[in-house]
């Protein structure tokens, strides 16, 4: 699993063949074709479809902005889009600093022993996606692990209601899902910063906060950028978490998109349009946030 890390961090050190690279293209082609056929073309299909119309069970070929217009006009979508972006943003705002702190501790404080912990953190990526979400419902439920333990201990008299079926539950669960994924790029970009580098800065009288802002964050910026993209995009695009722990008041735009494809009265073109609007919105917020980080750290 450390391989996932070295891949993301250092440039290749392979001893390259001196001959021509025509064989390289032949090796690349099958996977490249696969990406084209099963990734690029389907995305294009979805985009084209978003301009079509659905009438009952039939899809009508069209070029209309009806679906986009519908989203622009109806307040229901605005509320859902806003909630999605806010929840995704808050999740990223929790996940990225946690991952940053963890990477810092693993690399600079624990050093060698940090490697083992890192393995454990990454291993949790493979501890079941649905399983973890469902487990959080067991933990946070009204009669769940946390409430029943607290009541058993006599800390509270009645269950804490806000723990489950709330935006709180969604953010906690998403944080658990995305934290290891965010550690991956941040740790690997931090791995390029040596301890000596920090020592020198400290000896020269740099204070800790200053150190973080002027050295650590700028040097780990590529990793922070990737981690933020992971956390924000994937949190905003998750529909399983809100549907299992978010409650009826906590559904996100992903639930609406999913319903357009696997629900009663589905509408594929509309679902496609909502998906693209959501991604565009998330990307705009993401780039604005990255601008802000850059501005703060270089200033």
């Amino acid at each position: 699993m450390t391989d996932l890390l070295t891949a993301a961090s250092r440039g290749s050190r392979a001893i390259r063949p001196s001959g021509g690279g025509s064989g390289a293209f032949r090796l690349l082609t099958p996977a490249a074709l696969y990406y084209a056929v099963f990734f690029a073309i389907p995305m294009l299909c979805l985009f084209v479809l978003s301009f079509w119309r659905a009438q009952g069970f039939d899809l009508i070929v069209d070029f209309s902005l009806d679906n986009y217009w519908k989203i622009a006009q109806s307040p229901v979508y605005h509320v859902l889009l806003l909630r999605t972006v806010v929840i995704g943003f808050i999740t990223a705002l929790i996940v990225v600093p946690l991952a940053f702190a963890l990477s810092y501790v693993l690399h600079f404080v624990l050093a060698r022993r940090g490697q083992i912990v890192l393995q454990l953190v990454l291993l949790s990526l493979f501890s079941g996606y649905l399983v973890r979400i469902y487990a959080w419902r067991t933990i946070l439920g009204k009669q769940g692990l946390l409430n029943s333990t607290l009541m058993w201990l006599g800390v509270i008299d009645s269950p804490l209601e806000f723990l489950i079926y709330s935006n709180f539950a969604t953010v906690i669960t998403l944080t658990g899902l995305l934290l290891p994924l965010a550690v991956l790029p941040i740790y690997s970009s931090m791995a390029n910063i040596s301890r000596d580098h920090l020592e020198v800065a400290r000896d020269l009288g740099s204070r800790r906060a200053h150190l973080v802002r002027t050295i650590l964050v700028p040097m780990a910026l590529p990793g922070i950028r990737t981690a933020s993209a992971f956390a924000f995009l994937l949190a905003a695009g998750d529909f399983v978490t809100p549907s299992l722990v978010g409650g009826t008041q906590g559904i996100m735009i992903g639930n609406v998109i999913a319903d357009q494809f696997r629900g009663i009265g589905s509408n594929w073109p509309l679902g496609g349009a909502i998906a693209f609007v959501t991604m565009a919105l998330v990307l705009v917020v993401y780039f604005a946030a990255m601008r802000l980080i850059r501005w703060v750290t270089t200033w």
């Binding site: 099963f38 299909c45 979805l46 479809l49 695009g237 998750d238 998109i257 496609g272």
Partner: peptide
């Protein structure tokens, strides 16, 4: 998001 990959494949 896997959701978007999933639905785009379903469409294709």
């Amino acid at each position: 998001p896997l959701l978007v990959i999933g639905i785009s494949l379903a469409v294709a």
